[in-house]
Amino acid sequence: MTDRTLYIVTCGAPLAARVADGVSAARSRGWNPYVIPTDAALPWLESQDLADVPILTGNRKPTEAKRAPKADAIVVVPATFNTLNAWANGNANTYPLTTLCAALGSRTRTVAVPFAKTDLAGHPAWLASLAVLRYAGVRVVDPHDGSTASLDPVESGTGDHIAESFRWDWVLGELEPAGETRGP
Protein backbone atom coordinates (compact mmCIF):
# COMPACT_ATOMS: atom_id res chain seq x y z
CA MET A 1 0.00 0.00 0.00
CA THR A 2 1.27 3.43 -0.87
CA ASP A 3 0.50 6.82 0.55
CA ARG A 4 1.79 8.96 -2.34
CA THR A 5 -0.90 10.15 -4.73
CA LEU A 6 -0.03 10.88 -8.36
CA TYR A 7 -2.41 12.49 -10.83
CA ILE A 8 -1.68 11.53 -14.44
CA VAL A 9 -3.24 14.18 -16.65
CA THR A 10 -3.31 13.09 -20.27
CA CYS A 11 -4.20 14.89 -23.50
CA GLY A 12 -5.21 13.65 -26.95
CA ALA A 13 -1.98 12.77 -28.74
CA PRO A 14 -0.17 9.48 -29.51
CA LEU A 15 1.66 9.42 -26.18
CA ALA A 16 -1.72 9.00 -24.46
CA ALA A 17 -1.62 5.42 -25.78
CA ARG A 18 1.00 4.72 -23.09
CA VAL A 19 -1.02 5.75 -20.01
CA ALA A 20 -1.41 2.14 -18.83
CA ASP A 21 2.39 1.81 -18.89
CA GLY A 22 2.61 4.99 -16.84
CA VAL A 23 0.17 3.62 -14.27
CA SER A 24 2.22 0.44 -13.94
CA ALA A 25 5.51 2.34 -13.69
CA ALA A 26 4.05 4.73 -11.11
CA ARG A 27 2.82 1.86 -8.96
CA SER A 28 6.21 0.15 -9.12
CA ARG A 29 7.72 3.37 -7.70
CA GLY A 30 5.24 3.56 -4.83
CA TRP A 31 2.66 5.94 -6.29
CA ASN A 32 -1.11 5.57 -6.14
CA PRO A 33 -2.17 6.88 -9.58
CA TYR A 34 -5.36 8.60 -10.72
CA VAL A 35 -5.91 9.34 -14.42
CA ILE A 36 -7.40 12.70 -15.45
CA PRO A 37 -7.96 12.77 -19.24
CA THR A 38 -8.97 15.67 -21.43
CA ASP A 39 -11.97 14.95 -23.64
CA ALA A 40 -9.59 14.47 -26.58
CA ALA A 41 -7.63 11.83 -24.63
CA LEU A 42 -10.62 9.59 -23.86
CA PRO A 43 -10.49 7.69 -27.20
CA TRP A 44 -6.79 6.91 -26.56
CA LEU A 45 -7.71 5.25 -23.26
CA GLU A 46 -10.47 2.98 -24.59
CA SER A 47 -8.21 0.12 -25.67
CA GLN A 48 -5.95 0.24 -22.59
CA ASP A 49 -6.33 -1.99 -19.57
CA LEU A 50 -6.39 0.51 -16.74
CA ALA A 51 -7.99 -2.09 -14.42
CA ASP A 52 -8.85 -0.49 -11.10
CA VAL A 53 -7.28 2.93 -11.70
CA PRO A 54 -9.76 5.74 -11.07
CA ILE A 55 -10.38 7.81 -14.19
CA LEU A 56 -11.64 11.24 -13.19
CA THR A 57 -13.64 13.16 -15.76
CA GLY A 58 -15.78 16.24 -15.40
CA ASN A 59 -16.29 18.31 -12.30
CA ARG A 60 -17.97 16.69 -9.34
CA LYS A 61 -21.40 17.83 -8.26
CA PRO A 62 -21.63 20.01 -5.16
CA THR A 63 -23.24 17.14 -3.23
CA GLU A 64 -20.54 14.61 -4.18
CA ALA A 65 -17.57 13.82 -1.97
CA LYS A 66 -14.07 14.44 -3.27
CA ARG A 67 -13.08 11.69 -5.65
CA ALA A 68 -9.37 11.58 -4.91
CA PRO A 69 -6.94 12.53 -2.19
CA LYS A 70 -4.82 15.64 -2.67
CA ALA A 71 -2.03 14.97 -5.17
CA ASP A 72 1.54 14.75 -3.96
CA ALA A 73 2.63 15.18 -7.58
CA ILE A 74 1.17 15.59 -11.05
CA VAL A 75 2.44 14.53 -14.46
CA VAL A 76 1.02 15.72 -17.77
CA VAL A 77 1.75 13.10 -20.43
CA PRO A 78 1.36 14.27 -23.13
CA ALA A 79 0.75 18.00 -22.80
CA THR A 80 -0.69 19.18 -26.10
CA PHE A 81 -0.43 22.66 -27.60
CA ASN A 82 -3.96 23.60 -26.55
CA THR A 83 -3.72 22.35 -22.97
CA LEU A 84 -0.23 23.68 -22.34
CA ASN A 85 -1.12 27.19 -23.55
CA ALA A 86 -4.43 27.26 -21.66
CA TRP A 87 -2.69 26.05 -18.49
CA ALA A 88 0.05 28.67 -18.71
CA ASN A 89 -2.59 31.37 -19.21
CA GLY A 90 -4.59 30.23 -16.19
CA ASN A 91 -7.63 29.02 -18.13
CA ALA A 92 -9.35 26.61 -15.77
CA ASN A 93 -12.42 25.83 -17.89
CA THR A 94 -12.16 22.01 -17.80
CA TYR A 95 -11.48 19.57 -14.98
CA PRO A 96 -7.95 18.72 -16.23
CA LEU A 97 -7.09 22.42 -16.59
CA THR A 98 -8.53 23.27 -13.18
CA THR A 99 -6.37 20.49 -11.72
CA LEU A 100 -3.25 21.81 -13.46
CA CYS A 101 -3.88 25.46 -12.57
CA ALA A 102 -4.50 24.52 -8.93
CA ALA A 103 -1.23 22.55 -8.93
CA LEU A 104 0.69 25.68 -9.90
CA GLY A 105 -1.03 27.70 -7.20
CA SER A 106 -0.32 25.09 -4.51
CA ARG A 107 3.24 24.46 -5.73
CA THR A 108 2.54 20.75 -6.24
CA ARG A 109 5.47 18.97 -7.92
CA THR A 110 4.57 18.81 -11.60
CA VAL A 111 6.25 17.32 -14.67
CA ALA A 112 5.02 17.98 -18.20
CA VAL A 113 5.88 16.19 -21.43
CA PRO A 114 4.98 18.64 -24.21
CA PHE A 115 3.87 17.03 -27.46
CA ALA A 116 3.35 19.53 -30.29
CA LYS A 117 4.00 19.30 -33.99
CA THR A 118 6.60 21.58 -35.54
CA ASP A 119 4.08 24.06 -36.97
CA LEU A 120 2.33 24.48 -33.59
CA ALA A 121 5.60 24.61 -31.65
CA GLY A 122 6.62 27.47 -33.95
CA HIS A 123 3.76 29.63 -32.69
CA PRO A 124 5.00 32.40 -30.33
CA ALA A 125 2.55 31.39 -27.59
CA TRP A 126 4.24 27.98 -27.28
CA LEU A 127 7.61 29.31 -26.17
CA ALA A 128 5.98 31.90 -23.92
CA SER A 129 3.84 29.24 -22.25
CA LEU A 130 6.80 26.94 -21.72
CA ALA A 131 8.68 29.83 -20.10
CA VAL A 132 5.76 30.60 -17.77
CA LEU A 133 5.42 26.97 -16.71
CA ARG A 134 9.15 26.55 -16.16
CA TYR A 135 9.21 29.77 -14.14
CA ALA A 136 6.38 28.34 -12.00
CA GLY A 137 8.50 25.25 -11.27
CA VAL A 138 7.12 22.74 -13.78
CA ARG A 139 9.77 20.27 -14.94
CA VAL A 140 9.59 19.92 -18.73
CA VAL A 141 10.68 16.60 -20.26
CA ASP A 142 11.33 16.05 -23.98
CA PRO A 143 9.32 13.05 -25.23
CA HIS A 144 12.10 12.08 -27.64
CA ASP A 145 14.88 11.42 -25.14
CA GLY A 146 13.88 12.53 -21.63
CA SER A 147 16.00 15.67 -21.74
CA THR A 148 15.10 18.47 -19.36
CA ALA A 149 17.60 20.83 -20.98
CA SER A 150 16.02 20.99 -24.43
CA LEU A 151 12.70 20.31 -26.13
CA ASP A 152 12.25 19.35 -29.76
CA PRO A 153 8.91 19.54 -31.55
CA VAL A 154 7.29 16.39 -32.90
CA GLU A 155 7.73 15.99 -36.63
CA SER A 156 4.43 15.21 -38.34
CA GLY A 157 3.95 11.46 -38.76
CA THR A 158 6.44 10.47 -36.02
CA GLY A 159 4.11 10.55 -32.99
CA ASP A 160 3.58 6.78 -32.83
CA HIS A 161 7.32 6.11 -33.04
CA ILE A 162 8.02 8.63 -30.27
CA ALA A 163 5.30 7.04 -28.13
CA GLU A 164 6.81 3.57 -28.63
CA SER A 165 10.28 4.77 -27.57
CA PHE A 166 9.05 6.85 -24.63
CA ARG A 167 10.19 5.82 -21.14
CA TRP A 168 8.07 6.64 -18.13
CA ASP A 169 11.12 6.60 -15.87
CA TRP A 170 12.14 9.90 -17.54
CA VAL A 171 9.04 11.49 -16.05
CA LEU A 172 8.79 9.66 -12.75
CA GLY A 173 12.48 10.19 -12.02
CA GLU A 174 11.86 13.96 -12.10
CA LEU A 175 9.47 13.58 -9.16
CA GLU A 176 12.06 12.09 -6.82
CA PRO A 177 14.51 14.20 -4.82
CA ALA A 178 18.00 14.22 -6.31
CA GLY A 179 19.75 10.91 -5.82
CA GLU A 180 16.66 9.09 -4.59
CA THR A 181 14.78 6.40 -6.51
CA ARG A 182 12.02 4.07 -5.42
CA GLY A 183 10.93 0.72 -6.70
CA PRO A 184 12.75 -1.52 -9.18
Rank of each mutant, 00 (worst) to 15 (best):
G146A: 06
L97W: 09
D39G: 02
D142P: 09
K117Y: 14
A121N: 05
A102R: 15
S129H: 07
R109T: 13
Y34C: 02
V75C: 04
L120N: 05
T10I: 03
P43W: 02
V53H: 03
K66N: 14
S24W: 11
Y7I: 08
A73S: 03
T108F: 02
G22D: 08
T57H: 01
N89P: 07
W87R: 07
F115G: 01
D21I: 10
D72Q: 02
A112C: 11
A103S: 10
A92P: 12
Q48W: 02
G58Y: 00
V111K: 02
T108H: 04
A88H: 04
R109M: 07
V75W: 01
A65L: 12
S24R: 15
V140E: 04
D119N: 12
P37E: 04
N32P: 03
A25V: 10
A88V: 12
V75M: 03
R27L: 04
P143R: 06
S24N: 14
P62T: 13
H144K: 10
L127H: 15
A71Y: 05
G137I: 10
Q48I: 09
P124S: 11
V23E: 06
S129W: 07
E64C: 01
T5C: 05
N82A: 12
P69H: 04
P124H: 11
A103C: 10
W126R: 07
I55F: 00
P54R: 05
A92V: 14
A102E: 15
S24Y: 10
A79N: 08
D119F: 15
Q48C: 05
A17L: 15
C11E: 03
T110R: 11
A16M: 09
T110W: 10
N89H: 15
G90S: 12
